[in-house]
């Protein structure tokens, strides 16, 4: 569906990947700080997954953006560096600098999780990790929010021109960040001989899943408000929102793909596993297979959200001339 659009798959991929990376970084640093930031905090193993997962999606996403540039398409491979010659109030300019700092912090933050990291003695490594955690949380949130502000800054694109779009992207980023950590844990983790470490690992799993339940619930609310106010208003925004409402060209993809498969199904499955512990303090047990399927579905939903929003914004415009 992206043929002939100014912003196609590279931009969609960027919005998704940068969201996942920023979410993973925020979640990782939050888990680390919450688990007690001493040498071996309670959630340090889970935080390590997030720290290692964060930098690559963000960097790959930004790389994709360069492929979409008009200057790159005509062979000016390095003209994008002009972005670094100024800073102005364009969301893209602020975003460029923000992403640069975020990438830098995410790489160093990940490095502090490397055992026996060359050039970084352990005591300095832990101190640095702790300091960077405090930077990683706001930077990850800012990166996730910025992608929504970038799209939302234009009255000429009424579908995007909503103050709640940035919040939607933030919640989706955090949710997909949790999902990618859960997925990596489920795929890679081997049972630890140390039962204490294993208990911590299960506890982290519960916190992640419970957080994701809350985040998806919040995301459903944000989506509801986005659609409801689009429906209740008049003019450009009302016309634009029609593309995802009944009869619109993106309606099936939006409702079946994003809302049902990407939000409702995973939140119900997660609730099923979270509720017994939340309500009756029973043991939290989630099968590996379920964790994998739920995470994949959440990531799929996050991608579909970017896909639908990017297309919907470009096939709609102000009404009248």
């Amino acid at each position: 569906m992206t043929e002939g659009l100014l912003w196609g798959m590279p931009v969609i991929g960027y919005l998704f990947l940068a969201g996942v990376g920023a979410g993973a970084m925020t979640v990782s640093a939050s888990m680390y700080l919450r688990g007690g930031s001493e040498t071996r905090g309670m959630h340090v193993d889970t935080a390590r997954y997030g720290a290692f997962l964060a930098p690559i999606p963000i960097m790959v996403g930004c790389g994709l953006l360069i492929f979409e540039l008009g200057s790159f398409e005509v062979g000016n491979w390095l003209k994008w560096l002009n972005l670094y010659k100024v800073i102005n109030l364009s969301p893209m300019s602020i975003g460029t600098w923000l992403l640069t700092v975020t990438i830098g912090v995410s790489v160093v933050y990940a490095y502090t999780y490397v055992h026996n990291a060359p050039g970084l003695p352990d005591d300095r490594r832990y101190a640095l990790r702790r300091a960077l955690s405090w930077a990683a949380v706001p930077l990850g949130v800012a990166t996730a929010v910025y992608t929504g502000i970038l799209l939302g800054a234009m009255p000429s694109r009424p579908f995007w021109n909503s103050p709640i779009l940035a919040l939607l992207f933030l919640v989706s980023s955090l949710s997909t960040g949790v999902a990618v950590i859960l997925l990596a844990r489920a795929l890679i983790h081997r049972k630890d001989a140390d039962s204490g470490a294993e208990r911590h690992f299960e506890k982290s799993g519960y916190i992640l899943t419970a957080s994701d339940t809350l985040l998806i619930g919040f995301e459903i609310m944000v989506i509801f408000l986005f659609l409801m106010f689009g429906y209740l208003t008049v003019g450009d925004v009302k016309e634009a929102v029609q593309v995802v409402l009944a009869g619109g060209s993106l309606a099936t993809l939006f409702w079946l793909g994003f809302v049902v498969i990407g939000l409702v199904v995973p939140v119900l499955v997660e609730l099923y596993y979270v509720m017994p512990k939340l309500l009756y303090h029973r043991e939290y047990v989630a099968p590996r297979g379920v964790e994998i399927v739920v995470s994949v579905v959440v990531l799929f939903g996050g991608f579909l959200l970017r896909y639908i929003v990017v297309i919907a914004g470009q096939i709609t415009g102000p009404v009248g001339v």
Binding site: W7, E68, L69, G70, S71, W80, N82, S90, S156, R157
Partner: peptide
Amino acid sequence: CIGCKYCVHACP
């Protein structure tokens, strides 16, 4: 100009 297309979107 690097051809980011942001202005193309922004122009009503």
